[in-house]
Structure formats: structure tokens, C-alpha cells
Design a protein around this nucleic acid. Sequence first.
DNA 1: CCCCCATATATGTAAAATGCCTATATAGAA
DNA 2: TTCTATATAGGCATTTTACATATATGGGGG
Lengths: 131, 131
Amino acid sequence: MCQDVGNHHKGSCRCAGMQMGRFMQPCLLLLLHRQSTHGYELMQNLEEFGFASSEIDPGTIYRHLRKMEEEGLVRSRWDTEQGGPAKRLYEITAEGEEILHAWAVTITFNKQRLERFLEKYQSQFQKTIKK
Amino acid sequence: MCQDVGNHHKGSCRCAGMQMGRFMQPCLLLLLHRQSTHGYELMQNLEEFGFASSEIDPGTIYRHLRKMEEEGLVRSRWDTEQGGPAKRLYEITAEGEEILHAWAVTITFNKQRLERFLEKYQSQFQKTIKK
DNA sequence: CCCCCATATATGTAAAATGCCTATATAGAA
DNA sequence: TTCTATATAGGCATTTTACATATATGGGGG
């Protein structure tokens, strides 16, 4: 998937794939670049990226965050100062920002892919419908 | 993923997900709607949809085709008349065409998602870069 | 004739991702 | 007290993915 741009490729490439599941990662990174915050709030803010509340599973969000932390894209610390259950505050790392830029390239490429598909689809079916 | 349009939803929904792997399916269906043919040729024609030859794995193509046949989206028969190894000729079914239309809706939706992301990305980083 | 190559289809398998469910804890409101 | 919202986390069955390998046909070169 990883459009062979740059030097990161299939298999182990972290911006590889274009599952909408993985698409959650760049969204989280973009939100964190905007402002450091915790998982629960990120979860709510994901809706602005077109994620339906039904498809936002807390388990999935937290797993993405922990995984990104393992990979060094984000960093976290506990915040117990504000009452209520403890929050794990996340912030993006320099490496995370780098990957975010790589994602932007991948996403641009994939957007074009979808556009190309839709063009072909439309021209193929307008013909059929006319006849 | 399955944008909650219409009545097909998560989990068992066949147009769910937006992995580029799954994106191969609507591409195959569109090619087959254009012309019935066999897997090996489909594999080569996938390049026009932006699949790099490196990421086109024969095993994956054939498995997609068999899976779509199980689901009733395509139908196949052996062609041994033309010399060389036997070919499995595929054609799209009525149900397959239906699903192709559903895919077009999903893909339109996801394209918009990617666009929205890129807009946000650009506006966020133009600011940062300026400063 | 034999070997290599392009054509053509298919399976095995380990690793990763996904969806869905459940567990845990805090604290305010009813 | 009980219910609800906030907040994080783990279990687990199924699906997907990447990659490697197996099998067969037939043409061309040596």
C-alpha cells in the first residue's frame, strides 16, 4: 500500500495499509499535534474525522495509543490531579510527527486511488444506464 | 466503516472496512463488469487502479476471487479450450453488481473522509511552518 | 530431449488487526 | 444506595495480510 514513496515499505512499514482502522492512527496523531490530551477525549474528537460513534470502540482506541507508544510515536504520563479516574495524558513525539507527515503522503495517494476508481465506475455505468 | 448508509452494517457487512486489501474487491468487480476474464489477467489489470506490481500477490487475488464466488458475487467455469494451463473464467453476477454499487457509495464516503483529514492536516501545519 | 520460463491456479502458515465483550475504578447525581 | 458518566484496560475468536511454496501446461533454446 505504502505507495513506494520514500524508503518505507510493506510488512513492517508503519504507514502501510489503508484500513480505516489504521486510518485512526494518523487522526490520533493529528489531534495530539493540535493538543496533548487523554484517550477518552481523543475518542470523542475522532468523530470530526468521520468515525461514527458506533464504530469507535474504547478498547481499540486505547490499544492504538499503547501501540503507538511502544513505537515511540507518542509518550504518556498519568494525571491524577484533577479528580475522577486517573487519566493517561498523551503527547506526540518528534518521531510521531514525522510519521504523521508520511501518513499525509500515503493518504493523498490513496485519495487519488479512490478518485480514479470512482471515475472509472461512473464512466462505466453511465454507459450501461443510457442504453 | 460502513458509513451507516442503507441497511448494511459492521461485522458481517461485505462492503465494510476500508483496507486497501478489500479495495481490491470492488476493483475486481469493476473489471469483471467490463469484461469476463480469468484471474491471471485480472491480476495484471489491477495496476490501472494504482496497485503496484510488488503488492499484487497471486495468492491474494485468487483467494479474493474464490471468496467472492462463495458469496455469490462472481461465478466461474473452467476453460481448457485454449491450450496452456486451464483458466478459470470469472463473470460478475447480479448480486455482484449490486455490491459494486454499494462499494461505490462506501468509497465516495471514504474519499471524503480522506479529504477532510488532509484539509485539517494542511491548515494545522501551514500555521506551524510559518511561525 | 531437457531445462527454463511464462502462464495459470492454489494452499500453508505465522503474524497482525478487528470486533465485541467484559472488568476495573472514581465520583457526582438522583 | 444505585445509577450514570468518566477513564482505562484485557480477553478472545475471527479475519486479514504477507510471504512462501506447490502444481501443472506448453513454448523456446541449447
